[in-house]
């Protein structure tokens, strides 16, 4: 049986990818951040998952404004890297897992989560930066990746509660797949940040710390945070944190926090990273 062994929460700030791609990781600005991710990278090398389910959002790269799916599952065998406006990141093509993705879609839709099926999709920093942070810069990504894109760009994003419930359904779907597989689920984006308007640069470490604390012990409290509270307290783009709740829902009721890192800034973002093992 396939098993979800752990979840990773991490920011996906594009500037982090650019720092790696341009060889700036040792600069004083970036060095603390990459040092902070080192233990997470080591954990990941040991965990050696067969499959990553990457909960992320597209930033107007795969989806223009013709179609905006709320939950979209990448069912392709390969996902090319998007040119977001400064050329594609020089990272390997992302290999999917079409058979498992098709199973997930079937299971989720029958479980009353109406997923959009995506058979061709380019992936942007929302997906590639977390891979870089946790796997480094290998010639090929060491595992298959199933992208789960969540609309957080046009208001309203799905609620944290809905995301959490979808995560629970993903756990049921994965556990009904016969093959022996280790699966790690990523929840990406956040933490507090705002990159638009005169209020840009907003961060809220108090909000972020409470969020990290309750992810393991009291995720139900987090599922009750209304959209307006994310926007007002943690910045217009902090709504991405609902994707961490999707990850958390997929881990089952009991988890153990094995690593946490928090750092300001990466560009305009308060960066968070957490690793939760299912128990």
């Amino acid at each position: 049986m396939a098993r979800i062994i752990a979840g990773v929460g991490t920011s996906h700030t594009p500037a982090i990818g650019a720092a790696v791609d341009n060889g700036k990781t040792d600069q004083p600005y970036w060095q603390p951040l990459f040092k902070g991710y080192e233990p997470a990278k080591q954990w990941m090398a040991k965990a050696a998952p067969d499959v990553v389910i990457m909960v992320y959002n597209d930033h107007v790269n795969a989806f223009d404004f013709k179609v905006i799916p709320t939950f979209a599952l990448g069912c392709a065998g390969e996902f090319p890297i998007a040119d977001e406006g400064w050329g594609p990141r020089p990272v390997p093509v992302v290999k999917g897992y079409p058979e498992l993705a098709a199973h997930l879609v079937q299971s989720l839709v029958l479980d009353e989560f109406d997923m959009t099926i995506v058979n061709e999709m380019q992936v942007d920093h929302g997906l590639t930066v977390p891979l870089t942070l946790l796997f480094g810069s290998p010639a090929q990504w060491p595992c298959r990746v199933i992208p789960l894109a969540v609309n957080v760009v046009q208001y309203p994003a799905p609620t944290g509660h809905r995301c959490y419930r979808l995560g629970q359904a993903i756990r049921r779907a994965v556990e009904s797949w016969q093959e022996e597989l280790k699966v790690v689920v990523f929840g990406t984006g956040g933490m507090s940040h705002q990159i638009q308007g005169p209020r840009a640069g907003l961060t809220n470490p108090v909000f972020d710390k409470a969020f990290l604390d309750d992810l393991s012990g009291d995720p139900e409290r987090l599922t009750r945070i209304p959209p307006i509270e994310y926007l007002r307290e943690a910045g217009a783009e902090a709504i991405e944190l609902v994707m961490w709740l999707l990850m958390r829902g997929a881990l089952g009721p009991r988890v153990e926090e094995v690593y946490r890192f928090y750092h300001i800034p990466a560009s305009s973002t308060a960066v968070g990273n957490i690793i939760l093992e299912s128990r």
Binding site: G197, P198, R199, A200, G201, N204, P205, A234, P265, S268
Partner: peptide, 23 residues
């Protein structure tokens, strides 16, 4: 982002290095 706040890029970067804008 710095242009949207009316700050110079340098002042904006400095604000972020000091922990960002408080709500």
């Amino acid at each position: 982002a710095s242009q949207m706040t009316g700050m110079t890029e340098k002042d904006y970067v400095d604000m972020m290095l000091k922990g960002g804008r408080s709500p």
